[in-house]
Design a protein around this nucleic acid. Structure first.
Length: 294
DNA sequence: CGCCATTCGGGTTCTCGTAT
DNA sequence: ATACGAGAACCCGAATGGCG
């Protein structure tokens, strides 16, 4: 750093051919400039400037050194400009991890729009249902369902998770449509195990169901796609996040039941490492993604 | 004689080693 | 980890001296 300061002092003297004018431009004194150049010459072991009390001129070595200094200082300026630009414009690699369902249903359909808006951001999207360590895995950001968990991370709640109970039309024709949560006891129920290993209990809102509802665990999977596949195959009633079930509900492969009894349970969370929100690419991603879950 | 680079002396800041 | 002191480095303003 000191070398760069000395270089720019020397360059200013070389360009003005005057210690006093150079000092004025550098907002210092002529003596400081003089000493600075003298120290530089001593360090290099060569005289860079010929000076009389009336005139300053470059020696042959000085002219050579001047050319190099101008080039180096230009490079440094360019580097600084590039860095300060990267601090204000979203660019660079952004590593995102999320669950398969959120990735495929929410993020992937919006990627084209994201790329058009932020073409300089290289997005790496990893779909992983197991809980990943953001710090160990060098991820910038995660979108997860459930609870934030890791206290080392910053978290923003994006939306509550709405669940639907659903089954195939065929199953409901054969086994009947449950009218109250307690009637689920007479049905085959399909559960999804959370990445933590826990099977989340099904929560209901109805006042007369104050006592915990007994829900059989007829089938348990660790993947929502599997839960929905067996539900569509007529094997029971499944409880899945609305975002995962929407396409199957829209096509009629699954039919919702007990809709008025369902409550919001858990949330979608955005997680990132503290301090990283200063990165423009991460801020851009957070601002882009947040409205998608409203 | 005026201008300007250099030198000098003194004050301030920084760095590094040592003690607690 | 922090505080302290000694020495080095740096800067400034004033004085000096040489050139045109």
């Amino acid at each position: 750093m000191e070398t760069l300061t000395t270089m720019s002092t020397f360059v200013r003297v070389a360009e003005t051919r005057n210690f006093t004018r150079a000092a004025r431009q550098l907002r210092t004194t002529a003596s400081a400039v003089s000493k600075s150049v003298a120290r530089l010459e001593q360090r290099l072991g060569v005289r860079l400037l010929d000076r009389t009390t009336r005139r300053v001129s470059l020696t042959q070595e000085g002219a050579l050194y001047y050319e190099r200094c101008v080039r180096i200082l230009g490079e440094v300026n360019d580097a600084e400009a590039e860095i300060s630009q990267s601090l204000t414009r979203p660019r660079g690699r952004l590593r995102v991890t999320t669950t398969t369902i959120l990735g495929l249903r929410v993020l992937v359909p919006q990627l084209r729009r994201f790329r058009e808006r932020f073409p300089e951001v290289q997005l790496e999207l990893e779909l992983e249902d197991a809980v990943v360590d953001l710090i160990a895995g060098s991820y910038d950001v995660a979108i997860r369902m459930g609870e934030p968990g890791d206290p080392r991370l910053k978290a923003r709640r994006l939306a509550p998770i709405r669940h639907v109970l659903c089954a195939s039309p065929d199953y409901l024709r054969k086994r009947g449509v449950p009218r109250t949560p307690s009637q689920l006891a007479e049905h085959d129920c399909i559960h999804c195990r959370l990445p933590s290993g826990r099977i989340e209990p099904w929560a209901f809102a109805t006042a007369q169901e104050a006592a915990p509802v007994r829900v059989p665990q007829s089938l348990v999977f660790n993947h929502l796609e599997a839960v929905m596949m067996v539900a569509m195959d007529g094997m029971g009633i499944a409880r899945v996040p609305e975002v995962a079930a929407t396409p199957a509900l829209a096509s009629g492969k699954l039919v919702p039941v007990l809709r008025e009894h369902m409550v919001e349970q858990g949330s979608v969370w955005l997680l990132w490492q503290p301090g990283r929100e200063r990165l423009p690419r991460l801020r851009a991603f957070i601002d882009f993604v947040s409205p998608l879950f409203r």
